[in-house]
Design a binder for these strands. Structure first.
Lengths: 151, 151
DNA sequence: TCTTGACCTTGCTACGATGGGAAGGTTTAG
DNA sequence: CTAAACCTTCCCATCGTAGCAAGGTCAAGA
């Protein structure tokens, strides 16, 4: 089985197959006299395993451990579950961070006209809020363009 | 103002200040006879702008456009809002992807004992489900360890 | 004054996972 | 016999961040 066939069979690009072999995630493939790599069903299985795990967001490092556990018929499921749990936790942290970003951005965008006018709370936020809360003379707290014209 | 002082004032590491200057996001800082960089308030402002925008997940490329708009007093807020909107959309896509991962992982983990026993639906999923739905002899559909012992 | 430590400078390296491309060998089909 | 479609290795780029090394500079204390 050529690398191209293995790629098609697993959904992993030939490029990545070589990469995974290079970093030791995948066993070194057999070679023919061509020096072409020769994959068997076992290799394809591992590639599919990797593919699926990547789809679920596991890092290569985590996949390496999971593959090791997979190959160990007697392993305790504890370790697998633990790896999965910390992976879930990491994902949830990142999700929360991004949700925080989205909330902040939506809040800012909700007050931005998005038309020809130059006032924009988004830029005011990015530009630093420290001078906004103390408007020198005007009465409006936000939406002022005094700082923009100052540049 | 030294790079160290500018770093403290903005929260951006000296390393990243040099990087931002190098890629043209930040204007080239003035130099003293030392060849030390010399930052003024305007530089610090830009650094804080960058810092805040990075915190909100904007890419350097987006920040470059936002900074340009910020400096243009008469810009229409439309463009800022549009950049923000597509950034939000990108974040939401990634959030949805990760939420999908979390859901799938939680589902798998919920059925994994996580103890000394080797059965583990997580590994079964990663190992490829195609052979599971057709169990050769047993009556249970999942949790079988026949495939593990086959390796 | 000399030394020491805290700065600053540039330049190179690495990360993680992926893709692109060059330059060259092989196989297969026409 | 030739052209296309493979394969091989090796190098480079991404993106944002951090580390280290080798060297220049400055400030403070003995």
């Amino acid at each position: 089985m050529n690398i191209g066939a293995a790629s098609k069979a697993s959904g992993v690009s030939a490029k990545m197959i070589r990469y995974y072999e290079g970093i030791g995630l995948l066993a070194k493939a057999a070679r023919r006299e061509n020096s072409y790599r020769d994959f068997d069903e076992r290799d394809v299985h591992d590639l599919r395993f990797i593919k699926r795990a990547r789809t679920l967001g596991f890092s290569v490092e985590e996949i390496s451990r999971l593959l090791g556990l997979w190959r160990d018929a007697g392993r305790p499921s504890r370790e697998v579950k633990q790896i999965t749990a910390s992976h879930i936790a990491g994902l949830e942290v990142r999700i929360a961070e991004m949700q925080g970003m989205v909330a902040a951005l939506k809040h800012l965008a909700a007050h931005c006209h998005g038309d020809d006018r130059p006032e924009c709370p988004i830029l005011e936020d990015l530009g630093g809020l420290e001078s906004i809360p103390a408007p020198p003379q005007g009465s409006r707290k936000r939406l002022g363009s005094s700082r923009e014209t100052a540049l």
